[in-house]
Amino acid sequence: MSNGNLPEQIVFRIRRFAPGRDKEPVWKEYPIAYEVGMTVLDGLWKVKETIDPTLAWRASCRMGVCGSCGMLINGKAGLGCNTQIAELGTAVVTVAPLANFPIVRDLVPDLRPLFDAHTALSPYIIRADTAEQEEPTREYYQSAEQMEAYLQFSYCIKCACCMAACPTCATDPVYSGPVALAQAHRYNTDTRDDGFEVRKEVLADEVGPWRCHFAGECSRVCPKGVDPAKAIQLMKRQLVADALGLRKKPPLAQPVEKPEGIERRPGIPEAPPPTV
């Protein structure tokens, strides 16, 4: 078996905490056999299956989609499932729970502050034609350029890596953090959305983007390339322009009129009926 530059055996140094038993988290070391292609999440499974079955963490999809396995890996926030041990290049892999969130147990953080902040900023399309949204008859038109304005920010999987890395989140429990703010900007920029005024009320408060001073850690650690720091700075520009009366509000996307007199090309089936 070829391990590249890594030894046959590597050590997982894990920050453990058991509520009711430990007053403070403690570091424990677990030597395991390294296998080519092993991710940090694979290593944790190996520790659990072969050394200590009480080790706890949160994971689900194992493919960087669900955002459950965010953790500090060698001090950097990232997903356990898409971090290759070979990529780290160290014989000792330190794994700790995401910082700035209370620890429930071992590597399991309590992410409720994230979801509360996210919910408070109305992360969904807000517009007056609720009937069309509930029972859609047509599609809203949006150009490619209009979609590109928010598409990058819509890839967020709420893994909380950005909030664990943010130095403002480290000191300020009131600050909404990069997840919620980037998502607020994602919807504010969506031409189908008309909820800027609703979110502005929340953003103007101390939870808003003004406590961000562009340390950029959120963008550096984001495992999906969402670039929350960019979203937050662009949001500030939008809010300043709005305060000065200079914000250019794009026209609200309208449902596309169904073309008439056009025959469907043969062999293309009808779209299925809406399910929601």
Binding site: F17, P19, G20, D22, E24, P25, L72, N74, G75, K76, A77, P97, L98, A99, N100, F101, P102, I103, V104, P109, D110, A164, A165, P167, C169, A170, T171, P173, F214, A215, G216, E217, R220
Partner: peptide, 22 residues
Amino acid sequence: RRHPNRLGIWGWVGGGSWGPDR
């Protein structure tokens, strides 16, 4: 029974592996 894990002011420089902009 949760353990508070906020880094505090120490998080401005320590508590992890950070980038130059921090």
